[in-house]
Simulated assay, not measured.
Amino acid sequence: MEPQNLTAVSEFFLMGLSQDPELQPLLFGLFLSMYLITVAGNLLIILAVTFDFHLHIPMYFFLSNLSLTDIGFISTTVPKMLVNVQTQSKSITYVGCLAQVSFFNLFGCLDSLLLSVMAYDRFVAICHPLQYTVIMNPHLCSLVVLVSFFISLLYSQLQLSLVSQITFCANVEIPSFFCESRQLLNLACSDTSTNAILLRCICAIFGGVPLLGILFSYVQIVSSVLRVSSSGGKYKAFSTCGSHLSVVCLFYGTGLGVYLTSSVSSSARKGAVDSVMYTVLTPMLNPFIYSLRNRDIKRTLGRLLSRIA
């Protein structure tokens, strides 16, 4: 069959996680529960930071933005999956697929950049405590978040421009529950070797630089903490980084794990199941990690929930 331009393709087909009709109600209930838990948990973090004056410091300002980003990240993929399962339909429009690609990369890159900024915040707090309030002033914090958003927007548009140039055959079946740039390149009818190289370079730059920033910050933090003489001081310093370090390991560990697994394994279905780790589980677990390991957040959430009750 002759390839046709992407603009002529009216819809794609998201094959989901399973074709078994008996599993569809289970998948719907499971993903609806995870989505509601994610949105509720991250909203509670945002409300706690907003209404508690004691949490109006840079660390929690960045945390509230991370929670907002996680809500956008999971809302890009899961609601469409729930609609398809409920209506027993696999289709997604051309515009809808490109929108998923754009927003998925926007929120994914923003997540990575915010984690890098939070690592820098911990670096300043531990290595330069006397200058912390001067360096991490409200103007700088707001500017950093704004710049991170525009960098993420640039990244998503670069990915979108690569995908929009691809030609497809009719009846494109995507072996996942959402549209992703890498999968669309694999399903193209035309030669996408140049696009694939550009995609890897873009991902390496926009994903590698924040990761290097995180590694640099923690190398400096560890070096500074090891010079502290008292064990109590070391524990207090490391405890302020525990939640953030856990989220970083979860985010990058699941993302890199899925990427490496998909490169080695030829099973598209296994790759779709693995992608649930970083698209659904990571945003859902982040609020629990921060609330369970942070006394300030737990205390504020307790007061907030008691007021609601």
Rank of each mutant, 00 (worst) to 15 (best):
P3E: 03
L6Q: 14
L6P: 00
A8F: 05
E11F: 14
G16L: 01
L17D: 02
P21A: 08
E22H: 11
L23A: 11
P25A: 03
F28E: 01
F28H: 07
F31A: 00
S33T: 10
M34H: 10
L36M: 13
T38F: 09
G41W: 02
N42G: 14
N42A: 14
I45R: 06
L47K: 11
L47V: 01
D52Y: 04
I57M: 09
Y60T: 00
F61R: 15
F61A: 08
F62Y: 13
L63N: 10
L66T: 12
L68P: 04
D70M: 13
T76C: 14
P79L: 15
V85S: 06
V85I: 13
Q86L: 09
S89F: 07
K90P: 07
S91W: 09
I92V: 15
T93Q: 08
Y94W: 06
Y94V: 02
L98I: 02
Q100F: 01
N105Q: 11
L106I: 01
F107M: 08
G108Q: 01
L110S: 07
D111P: 01
Y120R: 14
R122V: 03
V124K: 06
V124G: 07
V124I: 13
I126L: 15
C127E: 04
P129C: 06
T133W: 03
V134E: 05
M136K: 09
M136F: 03
N137C: 11
P138N: 04
P138T: 14
H139V: 07
C141Y: 09
S142L: 15
S142F: 13
V144W: 12
S148T: 15
F150I: 10
I151S: 01
S152P: 03
Y155A: 07
L158R: 09
S164R: 11
S164L: 06
I166A: 02
T167G: 09
F168H: 03
A170R: 13
V172H: 06
S176N: 15
S176D: 15
F177Y: 13
F178N: 13
R182V: 05
L184Q: 01
L187D: 08
C189P: 03
C189K: 10
S190P: 07
T192H: 03
I197S: 12
L198K: 13
I202G: 09
C203E: 09
A204R: 10
V209M: 09
L211P: 08
L212F: 14
V222Y: 15
S224Y: 00
S224H: 11
V225A: 08
V225M: 10
R227S: 14
S231L: 14
G233W: 05
A237C: 12
F238C: 01
S239C: 10
T240Y: 06
T240A: 15
S243D: 12
S243Y: 04
L245P: 05
L245H: 10
S246Q: 14
Y252D: 02
G253I: 04
T254L: 01
G257K: 01
G257F: 01
G257Q: 03
Y259D: 10
S262P: 04
S266G: 12
S267P: 04
A268M: 10
R269Q: 12
G271N: 13
V273G: 02
D274I: 06
D274K: 09
V276F: 00
M277D: 11
V280P: 04
V280W: 07
T282L: 07
P283G: 03
L285S: 00
Y290L: 01
R295C: 11
K298V: 02
K298T: 04
R299C: 10
R299G: 02
S306R: 15
I308K: 06
A309N: 13
A309E: 12
